[in-house]
Computed example of a mutant assay.
Amino acid sequence: MLKSVCFALALLAAGAGVAAEAPKGSLVIIGGGLRPENAAVWEKIVLLAGGKGARIAVFPTAAQNPAREGGNAVAFLNRHGAQAFLVPVAPLLAGSDVRKAADDPALADAVRNAGGAFFTGGDQARITGSLRRPDGGNSAVLDALWSMYRRGGVIAGTSAGAAIMSSTMFYDPPLDVVPILKHGVVDGKDIAPGLGFIGDDVFIDQHLLVRGRFARMLPVMLDKGYKLGLGIDENTAAVVGPGREVTIVGYTGALVLDLSEAGTDKAQPLFNLSNARISYVDNGDRFNLASRTYVPGPGKEPVDRSMREYREALFYTDILGNTSVVNLLEKLVDSNLERATGLAFEGPTSRAPERGFEFTFSRAPDSREFVTNREDAWSIYRIRMDVRPVRMRQPLYTVE
């Protein structure tokens, strides 16, 4: 009972800060795996924090080894011109009392007066558990973060530091994707309140294309009433400005899931979805969360419909594989076909191995596709996505 009450209080706290004042700052939401040599992302964080000499508070709160992870982040930011400093609010940091540190007035002032903050990866539950008090209220340091963000500072986070950006987050270690499609999620166990910096209308997930996590976002979005989902891939950042325009910076891109006009068949007890929209936003692309408009990055041109490469049926046996969904979308828009299909299922030793899911992607009247001249960078907007449960044969195959 107490856990449920604290969960509800945390939800209220996550939303209350956003409603009080529209932030003037920016977010840099990184999908994990941020490499030291990814100068575009590191430099963007420093620039948004105020440029050369900017003070950036580094939170190693989620890390298994906070001293090492925090020290690395400080060094990388300083290499690009910042004056970063470590914030000793981390449950696994030797010699630190996390509850005392989170309410330390001097530490809160340092965070409030900084130009930005950076959250390392790890376990996102350590972040929310450290920055919120046991009663669900904000610690002094969390209030300072909100103050800095509202004033115009930047809050950046990678992996676990990205998960906390929305008002709902997956717990870590996360469930695999197919079990979520099969069995759903449980509040307080599989998902929990995040810190809600992006607002309460966008759901965030990370490690997206590498781990096929776009599919696990869908049941949570339906359950929690989210109409927009933003999933960012590794070594890539979604930079969200005060006007709520998202710019993609980094190695690959992100997926935007739009359920504004989506529906479900409530007579079907298993997960299903119809008429959703999925978009792939590439490095340099922009997407406005308020107007839901897309602008392709520099050098992108509309796909020449007379120069289609793929003419055979498009079918993937594992739509959740590394970058599979984007690869299939690229082939769809580079074909003369109207739809492509992929499956998601588990092995014979899983719980309910006969349950699988069919994902169908099809062109819609409002779909748009862009590509660079060399055809190595695609932008694909508003492809229709439908999901329905299917029965997998058991055994799936036999040896000849």
Rank of each mutant, 00 (worst) to 15 (best):
S350Y: 05
A82L: 04
D205Q: 08
T128I: 11
V399F: 13
T349M: 09
L48N: 08
T120P: 01
N65G: 10
R355V: 12
P389T: 06
S324I: 02
D97T: 03
F370E: 03
T264Y: 07
S291G: 05
V74N: 09
L2V: 07
F287C: 00
G15V: 10
I29R: 00
S350D: 10
N336Q: 12
I278V: 15
G32R: 15
R308Y: 04
L209A: 14
G33Y: 09
S362K: 07
L142T: 06
A144W: 08
P302R: 02
G356V: 08
F76P: 00
D304F: 03
F287N: 01
S130L: 02
V220N: 02
S279T: 10
K24C: 12
N38K: 09
E309K: 09
D104V: 11
A215E: 03
P174K: 07
K182P: 13
K100M: 10
P348M: 14
G25R: 06
A125G: 14
A238W: 05
V177R: 00
I180R: 03
A163Y: 04
D201A: 15
R286D: 00
I319S: 00
G188A: 02
L314D: 00
A254I: 08
L107H: 08
K52E: 15
S291A: 15
A16W: 11
P395E: 08
V246L: 10
D223A: 13
A13E: 13
S147T: 13
V249A: 08
A156G: 03
V326L: 05
G136N: 05
P296H: 09
G51S: 07
S335T: 06
A215V: 02
Q206D: 05
M307W: 03
G15D: 13
D172E: 12
L222R: 12
H207I: 09
Q124S: 11
R150D: 14
E309Y: 10
A90M: 10
T293M: 03
L332H: 04
T158P: 01
T349H: 11
A10H: 03
S26W: 05
L289C: 08
S96N: 10
N38E: 14
G263C: 12
K3E: 15
L270N: 11
A40K: 10
S274Q: 15
I30K: 01
S335Y: 06
R292S: 05
E358K: 13
Q268H: 02
K52N: 14
G299V: 11
S147P: 01
G15W: 07
A340W: 00
L273V: 06
L48M: 08
R35N: 11
G25F: 02
I30A: 03
S96L: 00
A20K: 15
L270S: 12
T247E: 14
D223E: 15
F370W: 11
T264P: 04
I29W: 04
L273D: 09
G253K: 02
T128L: 00
G33R: 11
V18P: 01
G50K: 10
H183N: 14
D123M: 12
K227R: 14
Y280I: 07
E69R: 04
N327R: 14
S291D: 13
F7Q: 00
F357K: 12
R374Q: 15
I204F: 01
S166E: 00
D318S: 15
